[in-house]
Nucleic acid binder design. Structure first.
Lengths: 75, 75
DNA sequence: GAAAATACTGACAAATATGTCATTATTATT
DNA sequence: AATAATAATGACATATTTGTCAGTATTTTC
């Protein structure tokens, strides 16, 4: 059901956020200080983020939402 | 602040979903029957959807999340 | 312009995301 | 291996999304 699908989606998002963050050399704390978003929960796939939270992260990483999803989960 | 930014994002999403739905000729009820998502709240920008809800809609409309965001909100 | 279909709004409960903080675990640095 | 830095986890309060339904408004069809 949607359960597993969601899990995979959240895992994909987790990896993507972590890759973006580590790629830009920030710690979770630094992301928090800049965005007030606790990224640990997202990077460990514990939460089903809202689009505005994701948009804020994308702003911080200076990529578009479209770009954010490009590498992930085709459908 | 983030408030207005979010509002614009949600408005963009609202328009996008509505355009996709009307473009494919479905009523809100039909979308609901297929996805169990109440799209009215989204199309009226009342809610800050979670990514899994958006992903389900994208599945239904047979587009990727990347495609969903392509036309919207550059940054 | 009446009837039918569709969309919008509001309310409520339940589930869950977010905000905040403290603690533990892991990793990096020396 | 000890220290320091970073990440992960758990708990809690609060805000908000989602699920469900009923009612109202708007739009479409005849």
């Amino acid at each position: 059901m949607g359960q597993v699908r969601d899990e995979q989606l959240l895992k994909d998002i987790a990896l993507r956020v972590k890759a973006l963050r580590e790629g830009s050399g920030f710690s979770q704390e630094e992301v928090y200080n800049a965005t007030e978003i606790h990224v640990a929960r997202i990077e460990t796939a514990k939460v089903n983020v809202t689009i505005s939270t994701l948009a804020k992260l994308c702003d911080f990483f200076e990529i578009s939402l479209a770009e954010f999803f490009k590498p992930i989960h085709k459908s």
